[in-house]
Computed example of a mutant assay.
Amino acid sequence: MSTDTVIHRIVRPAVRRIARTRVTPNHLTTLRVATGLAAAAAFAAGGPWPAIGGAVFVLSMLLDRADGELARQTGRSSRFGHWYDIVGDCLCNMLALFGIGIGLWDTLGALGPLLGAVAGAGVGVMFWEIHGLRLAEARGYQLRPGVVVDPDDALVLVPVFVWTGAAAPMLVAAAVITPLASVWLALRAGRRTEERAGQRRS
Rank of each mutant, 00 (worst) to 15 (best):
R32P: 03
A38E: 01
V56K: 07
L108F: 00
A186Y: 09
A117W: 11
T164Y: 04
A117K: 00
A14S: 10
W163K: 03
E69W: 02
A51K: 15
P151D: 13
F80D: 06
A40D: 13
P113H: 08
V148C: 08
A45V: 03
G124C: 02
L187C: 04
Q199V: 04
P151Q: 15
A44R: 10
G81N: 01
L155F: 15
E129P: 00
I52E: 06
A40T: 04
I130G: 00
R17V: 14
A45E: 04
R144E: 12
V6K: 08
V58W: 07
L59Y: 08
H82W: 05
S77P: 01
G99N: 11
A96W: 07
G132C: 09
T3L: 14
Y141K: 06
A154N: 13
G46Y: 01
G54N: 07
R191C: 08
A181I: 08
V162M: 01
I10M: 14
M94G: 09
D85M: 09
C90G: 01
F161W: 05
R12E: 12
F57G: 13
V183A: 14
L91G: 03
G122M: 00
C90P: 00
E129R: 03
L97H: 12
R65Y: 14
V87I: 15
R134N: 11
I130W: 05
E137M: 06
G190P: 03
P113R: 02
P151K: 15
S2Q: 13
G88Q: 12
R20K: 01
A119T: 01
R76F: 07
L111V: 11
A45H: 00
V6Y: 13
